[in-house]
Design a protein around this nucleic acid. Structure first.
Lengths: 172, 172
DNA sequence: TGCACATATGTCGGTATTTACATATAATAA
DNA sequence: TTATTATATGTAAATACCGACATATGTGCA
């Protein structure tokens, strides 16, 4: 039971779901490919944390819908009580900025511009999501709201930094 | 040559350094354990990107000091020109917030408080580092300043969010 | 009809990363 | 004296993660 496994349990605590959809929904919280998700779900089922039923579909391929077992819900509860480990951020751009004196300034500027666009897109996506959720009945969970606000906070701050950094570089 | 390897080349582009010190200095940019650094440095030396000399010390154990070769500097320059991949953030706390309705609210609050302290410490550490650098002669590289400012931006924003989130939870 | 694409699940091989095991030197504190 | 800590380097085993390969269904478009 690694962090990804608890991420799956967390998702399933809301509602049963297929591996495919779990994979899509997890991307913003704990990115993982389907090749990591599917075997992990089998293993978790083998260990008794989840179970699945086959759901036939007419408009799409059939799917396996997983749900929490009591064991799974207990494991989730226990995990929630232990302090979260520190966040890890891996961003190649920080390394390139660090070494930028060795390269072409234009290349670095182009990469910062790409990053500015990345953050703008992210903010737009978040705003759409927040709007969609605010229309929902019943209103989404507290945790969900906290997370979406966090996305806003940090994306706005990252965007502000990237734009500021670009100005710094243009001034030279 | 993976991202970590380019991180090492980036560090070495400033000055020759030991594997041990490279490991320490990389923690804030691309975290890695010594067990990953040492074999990678050997391999990079084998491939001609770096070379090392043995430096005896009297107050500490002897060390291997690595430096860039011309091949290494060329590789670094080429890497700087290709667009950086998107950042990856892995934070267990986001998953726990997402699933918090399943657990004890007090546990979540405690973890948010720990995180508030984490960001405060980080900001303090960054401020010390920025002050230390601003006294240096000659002044540090542009990239270094951009990175330290980024650390400030995002830590302040994360701190603000964590404190806001705690208030939200206390209000219930 | 053929093609591309989203949905859906899976395996395999390789790379990246961590944890644990191992060793050695020098300073410092108990 | 002994223990601990920081410095310094390394290996081995296990885990986490990714990219490629593989297959199949249903939709929409040319």
């Amino acid at each position: 039971m690694n962090t990804l496994a608890y991420g799956l349990l967390s998702m399933l605590s809301y509602s049963p779901d297929s591996g495919y959809d779990l994979m899509l929904k997890l991307q913003s919280l704990w990115p993982a490919k389907h090749s990591q998700i599917y075997p992990l779900l089998s293993q978790m089922e083998n260990d008794g944390y989840v179970r699945h039923v086959l759901v036939p579909q007419t408009d799409k391929p059939d799917k396996k819908v997983y749900s929490l077992t009591d064991t799974g819900r207990d494991a989730l509860r226990a995990w929630l009580a232990v302090p979260a480990s520190e966040p890890v951020i891996r961003d190649e751009l920080t390394l390139k900025l660090f070494a930028m004196d060795q390269g072409n300034p234009e290349d670095i500027k182009r990469q910062l511009e790409l990053r500015v666009q990345y953050y703008r897109d992210r903010i737009h996506w978040l705003n759409c999501k927040i709007e969609a959720y605010s229309m929902k009945e019943p209103p989404p969970s507290r945790g969900m709201m906290l997370l979406m606000q966090r996305g806003r906070f940090s994306s706005e701050s990252d965007l502000a930094w990237a734009e500021w950094a670009l100005e710094q570089l243009r001034d030279e």
